[in-house]
């Protein structure tokens, strides 16, 4: 989770509402996983986005004019996709931060069968290999280039 508090954010209420909507459109609830707009997740996302305000606010102002709230969810996604190229930097930053928050969330990780937020200290058990797999190779004569005298 980011060290920056969500309360440090200077996003306006309308901007927060739009960001919440975008989070839910990008990753809605499903497959037993929460929406990226889930309050705990959104707080984390907002914290991460707070360092990018100068970059994101102008694009947010334009996206606000799309009146997404008047459309069905699938139509909203279609409309967003139509604007991704024009606002590539905005979406690059937004998507990256949403993904970093979402896929580090413990509820999400648990649903994916990943039971710790970091590999260390628990590590993972990887089954010992049955090296009989190598039998077809073991019978092969050395084939690296063995140099003769003078080479």
């Amino acid at each position: 989770m980011s060290d920056i508090l969500a309360s440090d954010s200077t996003y306006t209420e309308d901007e927060r509402a739009l960001l919440t909507r975008l989070c839910d459109l990008m990753i809605p609830a499903g497959e037993g996983r929460p929406s990226a707009a889930d309050p705990e997740l959104f707080n984390d996302i907002l914290s991460r986005l707070s360092t990018h305000e100068a970059l994101l606010k102008p694009a947010l102002a334009i996206l606000a004019t799309l009146a997404l709230e008047k459309l069905a969810a699938s139509e909203q996604v279609t409309l967003i996709n139509q604007h991704r190229e024009a606002y590539a930097t905005f979406f690059q930053v937004f998507e990256s931060q949403v993904i970093q928050a979402y896929y580090a969330n413990s509820a999400v990780l648990t649903s994916l069968g990943v039971n710790a937020p970091s590999p260390y200290p628990g590590g993972y058990d990887v089954e010992e290999t049955d090296w009989s797999l190598l039998d077809p190779v073991r019978g092969r004569e050395p084939f690296y280039r063995i140099l003769g005298s003078g080479e």
């Binding site: 990008m26 699938s74 996604v77």
Partner: peptide, 12 residues
């Protein structure tokens, strides 16, 4: 990896 309802299936 798309936005929307297909996101989770695509991720999986």
């Amino acid at each position: 990896l798309p936005w929307g309802s297909e996101h989770h299936a695509a991720f999986d």
